[in-house]
Design a binder for these strands. Structure first.
Lengths: 356, 356
DNA sequence: CAACTGCGAAAAATCGATTTATCCATTTTG
DNA sequence: CAAAATGGATAAATCGATTTTTCGCAGTTG
């Protein structure tokens, strides 16, 4: 820490007295009001320059009903997806002269609401909320009850009070189905987290509908963990154990969320199964590492930038008084088929070993 | 967006008039001042309860020299490390009744300074700065020049103006050296990013010193990219091409930063080399996926929680007026040796193929 | 009984800007 | 030439709290 005292920053009054005008005039000059004599305006600019004056955003926001602050609430910051999302949102807010205050709900609906209440305390102009579960949680209710302006993203489908922006998971899942069916898979396991009902259902339905349309007698097993990731590990373990007894197991796994992909890979490791020889794998959500591992992991890439941009556009339209019924926007995903997906039974050790 | 108008929130005056006291008294009651008649205090509490009153942090901070806001500036948000860091910092700030405003410098020193200037505009009580390069950048200079309170973390060694907190990279690197030497490696490649001079040098020196101490004639090659990650890819490619001609190549690679680990893996893929049979790999920085891939990737785990906690402790000590010379703190890392590290020459195809 | 002490609470100043109301000096108009 | 209109700037109110100052009243004291 610097020993030197923090010299008091110059206020608008310092500028005013140095320029020989009133504070009101300074404010007007800086706001670009044209009814100021050019000569005075110049004196103000000079004083600003000389003092290194900068407007105090906090004081400036005091007299504003809508403060130039945007709140962003994400379920977590640790994943690439939400990390990128926050980064994008921050940039977009900054472009419009707003400050972004980000908070993590830590995958808890209770905390989500608390954090939102704190945003409300700050009288943010708007909120970008990526709910833990879906658009019907207590946080959205709180926003509605308090007349807050906001947009819901990611784990949402549509809402009657707020605009929503999310990835078109259903279409992407249908695309995954087409790819897997096309490769010859006829027995596929889908894993997901039940809690995030909104999107998981969309992804599951999109996948199932397309698969059944292409091959009516395709077998689709589903393993859903209620709310936590850890139980899924056990469920998956049991599922494969049972399948092993029956002599039947799926030739491909489609994970509906990132952590599920990790759990699946971990389970494959344990059993000594290799992708794609022993089993194929596709995951929703891409990550940087997925293209450098061996095999590279096939994944659905969510359009983070587009979602962020749309969310901010929609949000600011509302902040600026835009009216009309809320819209539900879907942004298209890309499906990257990588080496983790192959044709069933083509691998060298398709029987599968069990190392451990 | 809710159609319902955002009803005006009740202010301290609303509470005051409902409780039949003055605003000053309300403020005192809420601040816990004891010189208020219990009867009046109760009336205030009742009014607060009834109106659902909450203090406006913005207005509250107006009359405070040090506002209850902490700024956090990270080079990026997309990686697990900085994602966790922001998450931790947010929680710690919140615990003390502060709001965290996080911003990404996007690995640019110019932007870093701009963002910092904006934090200064907000008159934050303190800043946690993870500099893009090291403690001598323009941002730290700005902080010093403006008498800001702050702590530098991650890519820093020590500073004469600010406290610093970082991982003990040198010790961790020595540990890596011990492990690799112990496994029999005598020719090791170290890759890194030159720009982050501070930590890269510490890591490199720590590694080299220990390796030479254990085996004086060990061969350590170094490939450093100046500032960007992409050039490293090309440099690494050339390095291995040359080595292939000479018939010599290292038996292990130690990457000094996360992206380098990805680049190395990607290069191994391209050449069809497998870990650990064809080459061993250790990376600085752990990630969740590293334990589920095959092979699992050995990594140095940085103590994110400890760094965050220390940083906040030190920062608040300064905010609360703590004096004395700045300290440089080092938090110990853990080294996780996973399957990507083996003994040289023990693999089935140690000659290495070239798939692509 | 006037002056003094203290307690508790209200009034007023403050933080740093924005916005509205006001005012003065020209200029235009009747 | 007096009255009205206008341009340009200032004074003052405002946002919602905190903090300092002032004040009234009750109980003590000389």
């Amino acid at each position: 820490m610097a020993h030197r005292q923090a010299q008091r920053r110059s206020s608008i009054h310092d500028v005013a007295s140095r320029a020989g005008v009133s504070a009101a005039t300074v404010s007007k000059v800086l706001a670009g009001v044209t009814t100021v004599k050019p000569e005075n305006a110049q004196r103000v600019f000079d004083a600003v320059e000389h003092l290194g004056y900068r407007v105090d955003p906090l004081a400036s926001d005091m007299r504003r009903a809508k403060r130039r602050i945007i709140g962003a609430i994400m379920p977590e910051f640790e994943s690439e997806f939400f990390g990128q999302m926050v980064s994008e949102l921050e940039g977009l807010a900054e472009q419009r002269g707003y400050t972004l205050v980000a908070a993590s709900s830590r995958e808890s609906e209770a905390r989500e609401k608390e954090v939102l209440a704190r945003m409300h305390d700050w009288r943010v102009a708007g909120v970008v909320l990526a709910p833990v579960r879906n658009e019907h949680g207590p946080a959205a209710g709180f926003m509605k009850a308090n007349g807050m302006t906001g947009v819901l993203i990611d784990r949402v489908l549509a809402d009657d009070a707020f605009d929503t922006v999310s990835a078109d998971s259903a279409a992407a899942s249908a695309e995954v189905a087409r790819e897997l069916i096309g490769k010859g898979h006829r027995h596929i396991l889908v894993i997901g987290l039940g809690q995030q009902a909104a999107t998981v259902r969309a992804r599951l339905d999109g996948f199932r509908a397309k698969a059944l349309e292409l091959v009516p007698d395709v077998r689709i097993d589903v393993v859903l963990s209620e709310s936590e990731v850890e139980p899924l590990r056990a469920l998956l373990h049991d599922y494969f154990d049972k399948g092993a007894k029956g002599g039947e197991r799926p030739t491909a796994v489609y994970s509906l969320f990132l952590k599920g992909t990790l759990v699946a890979l971990s389970e494959f490791r344990r059993r000594g199964w290799h992708c794609p020889d022993d089993i194929s794998l596709v995951g929703f959500d891409d990550a940087e590492w997925m293209q450098v591992t061996w095999p590279a992991i096939a994944a659905v890439v969510q359009p983070v930038r587009q979602i962020a941009a749309q969310a901010m556009d929609v949000l600011f339209a509302r902040i600026d008084g835009g009216d009309g019924p809320p819209k539900a926007r879907l942004e298209p995903c890309k499906v990257l088929m990588r080496e983790s997906v192959g044709s069933p039974g083509s691998g060298p050790h398709s029987g599968g070993g069990n190392r451990q």
